[in-house]
């Protein structure tokens, strides 16, 4: 396997990490909505924190995207 092909395969595999981020964000908003349904009055206060959780999950996903970019353009 010549390195160029390996690089592209690696970049492709790296983007699977974004799937993990998607699952994380889905889980956070799912839990938030089910909690908000149980106690709608408290939902407004926690709306910001749901986005913080989602941002952190997305942040960790961004790194797999970063690795893919590094593999494609830098290495």
């Amino acid at each position: 396997m010549d390195p160029i092909a390996a690089k592209y395969i690696g970049a492709g595999l790296a983007t699977i990490g974004m799937g993990g981020a998607a699952i994380g964000v889905g889980a956070i908003f799912g839990q938030f909505l089910s909690g908000a349904l149980r106690n709608p009055s408290a939902a407004d206060g926690q709306f910001g924190r749901a986005f913080i959780g989602a941002a952190l999950a997305e942040g960790l996903g961004v790194f797999s995207f970063l690795v893919a970019l590094l593999l494609l353009f830098v290495v």
């Binding site: 709306f47 910001g48 986005f51 941002a55 997305e58 942040g59 961004v62």
Partner: peptide
């Protein structure tokens, strides 16, 4: 306004976190 503020908080958290590590 609330969604706007929450989304802006989300954007800020995402970039501060990623920028810190990078």
């Amino acid at each position: 306004q609330r969604t706007g503020r929450a989304m802006s908080l989300g954007f800020r958290v995402l970039s501060e976190f990623v920028a810190g590590i990078i």
